[in-house]
């Protein structure tokens, strides 16, 4: 993911009241290559995987894009 997007951690600015869907759209606007990851990526907000992407985000939240895991 980091290789595809060419960046790892960064700040994302979204309007007040934005949801995780809005964050994803902001990421797409930043880099359309992210579309290739959409089906396999889970999204976590502040360390918890979001079941629904209509969760609202707040300033300072950590949004993590999680590719399929490979531990062990």
């Amino acid at each position: 993911m980091r290789e595809l997007l060419g960046e790892g951690e960064f700040e994302l600015v979204v309007p007040d009241g934005a949801t995780l869907v809005d964050c994803w759209e902001a990421l797409r606007a930043r880099n359309r290559k992210i579309d290739a990851l959409a089906s396999a990526t889970r999204i976590a907000r502040n360390g918890r995987v979001a079941a629904l992407l209509d969760e609202r985000v707040a300033e300072g939240d950590e949004i993590a894009l999680l590719p399929p895991v490979g531990g062990g």
Binding site: A44, L66, P67, V69, G70, G71, G72
Partner: peptide, 8 residues
Amino acid sequence: VKARASIW
């Protein structure tokens, strides 16, 4: 762990 831990 292999199925769900956040490790890559």
